[in-house]
Simulated assay, not measured.
Amino acid sequence: MNKRVAVFRKEHFNAAHRLYNRQWDDATNFRVFGKCSNPHYHGHNYELEVRVTGEPQADTGFVMDMKVLSDLIQQYVIEHFDHKNLNLDIPEFKDINPTAENIAVVIYNLLRPHVSEKQELRIRLYETPRNFVEYPA
C-alpha cells in the first residue's frame, strides 16, 4: 500500500521586478511584456505554496516536520526575496528574466538541497490571485 502524503506550507513575500529582454528596444519589450516592462519596475504580493510529498516517518508520523519546513522557507526564500528588487538585488536573476516561471524554478533550486532526496518537492507561486505557476510541472 502506498502511504505517500503531501504536506503544504504557505508563505508570502513582496518583491518588485521588471520583465524585459536587454537585447530588445523599449518598444519591443513593451509589446511583449506590456506594463510589466516598466523601466521603474512594479511589484507583486507573491503567495507561495511549498509541497513536500513522501511517506510518513514511523517514529514521528511526519512526512516532514512543518516547523523545519517553515524555517527553511524563511531562511532560503523569504529572507532572500522579501521587499527586494528581483532584477537588482537577487544574484540568481542577473542573467535571467524574473518571470513567475523563473522565480518558481529559483525557489525550487534554493530549497531542494535541504529536503530529503526521498521526498518530492513542488513549488506553486501565485503572482496574482488568478495567475500562478507550478514547478516542476
Rank of each mutant, 00 (worst) to 15 (best):
G34A: 03
M66K: 12
K67T: 06
N29S: 07
E55R: 10
F13C: 00
F33M: 02
R22L: 13
N14L: 06
V52M: 03
R18P: 03
Y20D: 00
N14T: 13
H12K: 08
S70Y: 08
E49L: 01
K67D: 06
N14W: 10
V32H: 15
F62H: 04
Q57R: 12
V52Y: 04
N14F: 12
F33K: 01
D65S: 08
H44L: 00
G54Q: 07
E11N: 12
K67C: 01
V32T: 12
S37I: 02
L19Q: 06
N21Y: 09
G43Y: 05
S70I: 02
E55Q: 11
R22F: 13
E11W: 11
Q23P: 04
Q57E: 11
R22N: 14
M66Q: 10
V63Y: 03
H12E: 13
F62G: 01
R22M: 09
L69D: 03
V68W: 03
Y46F: 14
L69R: 05
A16Q: 05
N21I: 10
N45P: 13
G61H: 13
V52H: 09
P39Y: 01
S37F: 04
A15V: 06
R18I: 09
G61K: 13
G54I: 03
H17K: 06
E55L: 03
R51E: 13
R18L: 04
D65L: 14
V50R: 08
M64F: 04
H44K: 02
A58G: 03
V32C: 10
V63A: 05
D26Q: 14
H12F: 14
S70E: 08
R22T: 13
S37G: 04
D65I: 10
T53M: 06
A27D: 15
D59F: 07
Q23S: 15
K67Q: 07
G54S: 05
K67R: 11
G54M: 03
V63I: 10
R31M: 12
N45Q: 15
W24K: 07
P56C: 12
R51L: 07
H40N: 15
L19M: 15
E47W: 15
H44P: 00
C36T: 10
P56I: 08
F62V: 00
V52D: 00
V50Y: 07
A15T: 05
F13V: 01
S37Q: 01
G43R: 02
P56R: 14
F13Y: 08
K35M: 11
N45H: 15
V32R: 14
Y41I: 07
Q57D: 15
D26W: 10
D59S: 10
T28K: 14
T28M: 06
V32G: 07
Y46G: 00
L48M: 02
D65N: 15
A15K: 04
A27W: 14
H12S: 13
